[in-house]
Amino acid sequence: MSHRTITRRDFLKVASAGPLAGALAPALARPAGVPAEKARVVLVRNEDALDPSGAPKAEVIQAMLDDAVRALVGEKDVVKAWKTLIRPEDTVGIKTNVWGKLPTTAEVEQAITRRVMDAGVPEDRLSVDDRGVLRNPIFQKATALINARPARTHQWSGMGSCIKNYIMFTPQPSAWHGDTCADLAGIWNLPEVKGKTRLNVLVMLTPLFHMIGTQQYNKDFTWAYKGLIVSRDPVAADATGLRVLEAKRREHFQDDGLLKPTPHHIQLAETRHHLGVSDPARIELVKLGWSEGLLI
């Protein structure tokens, strides 16, 4: 895909207009075709989401997800709310993330599974998978996808995002690594996924805000944020999660907080691929629950 080169000089011109603009350097202009309306994102937090060992409490996670989906679709009844997302005749793939150090968690998977079944989808037309999605018959036949993964920094893409979580739908994930994963949103145009995603859940229970070394994980760089970010729009969900990660980094490192490498795939998902909204000014953020240490 051809596009004009964005240089540091462009970045500086935008940055001189304000600090946030600098972080959004690749999104210098919203192209024609990108909707002007706001994308709704729900950030729900619960101080009691984790047990003393740091493990998620299933019943609290369920309640958090329910509250978020109700607020997202504007429906008081949780099953009715899910029925606006999932039809009984759907075949549903729940794309999770099994990275051992920081997985989506079984509790989040189970909370989603329960509500998909409550919406009328039988167990035999529902599957939870990550690395095996291309070989999974349910995912091959899926009419609906739910995308759930934890938020974390990433050594090549900048951020492990909802957008990035679909890389396992490609036979050769490394083919999407160019320019530090700039065009990950292009995956969302593949027939396996295009137009199928009904909900994105960015898990913010214990996000990873910094990484070191080959293993990319150190518990010292996680914190108990005890949140979930839920949206129909994966770009808006990721842009919101990114704000939280960068705010945490500013607090911890006392610097600009920007991620390295820049997770520009999030902004480019809007400006180049028109997948969703990355500009915080055009995101309607609904905050629910525990507000201490909210950061944004």
Partner: peptide
């Protein structure tokens, strides 16, 4: 240029 940009952002393309 990806590693260059990691340490010091110059441009999205390999100029």
């Amino acid at each position: 240029h990806s590693v260059l940009n990691y340490h010091f952002y110059v441009a999205d393309a390999d100029i």
